[in-house]
Amino acid sequence: MRSTTSVRALVIGTAAVAALGGLAGVSSATPGTGVSAKLLFQKTVGDKDYVVREITIQPGGETGWHFHDGRVYGVVRSGTLTHYDDTCSVDGVYRPGESISEPNGSDYVHIGRNHGTTPMVLEVLYVNPAGAPLSRDADAPACER
């Protein structure tokens, strides 16, 4: 789901706060194949965790089927992200400078893939319930089995 440029401003603004406030420890997300993540910022405010990560998916790589307990906002920095919903249909193709927003909940199982020939780099802001994992693994939908 494409979002407005305010998502980009939110991600960039949160990264700026990270530069001013220091960096936190390692994240506990489970990567798919060819995926790496670098934690840029993490802070808990009230009952919410705010986490900024740079996610890289190598050519042919994928995130694995998953969902999030909180909202996710991202901006593609390089490469192309192809995003699939639980019907195995492409629900978005995102190129450099484009933003993505993902709703929360187990009813929004999805996967991100890099079908390109260069690494795809995505800067992501997670707005999660405090203490919740950044993502939860999900079984592949019937259309992929």
Rank of each mutant, 00 (worst) to 15 (best):
V75A: 10
K48W: 05
T87P: 00
V93Q: 03
V72W: 00
Y50P: 06
Q42A: 15
G60H: 12
R8Y: 00
Y94C: 13
G131P: 05
Q42D: 07
L23H: 05
M1C: 06
M1T: 12
P133T: 08
G70W: 07
T4G: 11
H66I: 07
L39S: 15
D47R: 15
G34C: 06
V7E: 04
G13A: 13
I100S: 14
D85T: 11
G13L: 09
Y126V: 07
S89N: 15
H110V: 06
D91S: 03
T30F: 08
T33I: 10
G74R: 01
S6P: 02
G13P: 01
M120A: 14
M120I: 01
G21V: 09
A9K: 14
G22M: 06
G70V: 02
T5K: 14
P119Q: 10
L23K: 13
P119W: 10
S36R: 15
V90S: 10
A24C: 00
P133S: 04
A130C: 07
Q58C: 02
T14M: 14
L125M: 04
L20Y: 06
T56R: 12
K38F: 14
L10Q: 06
R136E: 14
P96G: 00
V72D: 00
V11I: 05
F67I: 00
P59I: 04
G60Y: 10
G60I: 10
S106P: 07
G131F: 09
K38S: 15
S99M: 13
V51I: 15
V90Y: 07
G64S: 10
A24F: 00
V35F: 08
S135D: 09
D91E: 03
G32F: 02
V51E: 05
V11F: 05
T30E: 15
V124Q: 05
A142Y: 02
A18M: 00
Y108T: 01
D107E: 04
L23S: 11
H66T: 05
T118R: 05
T30P: 14
W65I: 10
G64N: 10
S106C: 01
G92S: 07
Q58E: 10
G105W: 00
R8Q: 03
P133E: 01
V93R: 13
D85M: 11
R77F: 03
G116L: 03
V124E: 07
V127H: 04
G34M: 09
Y108R: 10
V72P: 06
L125C: 06
S89W: 02
N128K: 08
F67L: 02
V7A: 08
R136I: 15
D47T: 15
Y126N: 01
N128I: 08
G34Q: 02
Y73G: 04
F41S: 10
V11C: 02
A15K: 13
Y84R: 03
T4I: 01
I12W: 04
V45R: 14
P141L: 15
P59A: 12
L10C: 08
E62F: 12
I55D: 01
I55G: 06
M120W: 08
A9H: 11
T63W: 14
I12D: 12
G131S: 12
V45N: 04
V26D: 03
G112C: 08
Y84A: 00
A132E: 12
R145C: 06
F41R: 06
I12F: 00
M120Y: 09
G64E: 09
D86T: 08
A18L: 06
V11E: 05
T63E: 05
V17Y: 03
V121F: 00
G105M: 04
G21W: 09
L134E: 15
G64W: 12
